[in-house]
Amino acid sequence: MRGAIPILRVGPNLLTTVHVELDDNIADAFQQDVLQAIERTGAKGLVIDISSLDEVDTYVARVLADTGRMAGLMGARTVLVGMRPEVAATLVRMGYAMEGVETALDVDDGIALLAVRRSVAGAKDTA
């Protein structure tokens, strides 16, 4: 299952598109792949594109949020992008709070958000 969800390097970030339905095996492999890619590339940001997911249940939401928290422990900031309107409406109606992960409309906005976060962090470092 390793490599089932490809992870691409785009500038200082990693970009991954979840295009398959997650189960326990794929989820575990995906998290391991992401963390090793962060270590290998030194990426400071991770963009997870979920625009091809027609539904996100609490299991998938938890896998995605956990992945963001794991990446955060390694110093990479995660932005979840491309959530479909139906998915956003359903998660809120269920009362599910997507804690610990920022979101943006699409991949471009996600990359832009990471750039802003990096420049703010850089300004603090030099202050």
């Binding site: 027609d54 539904e55 249940d57 139906e86 359903t90």
Partner: peptide
């Protein structure tokens, strides 16, 4: 519609899991 479909399908997924 697409919203109702997502709601029912997500519920089915929760209960099946």
């Amino acid at each position: 519609d697409t919203f109702a479909t997502a709601a029912l399908t997500t519920g089915a997924s929760e209960l099946a899991r």
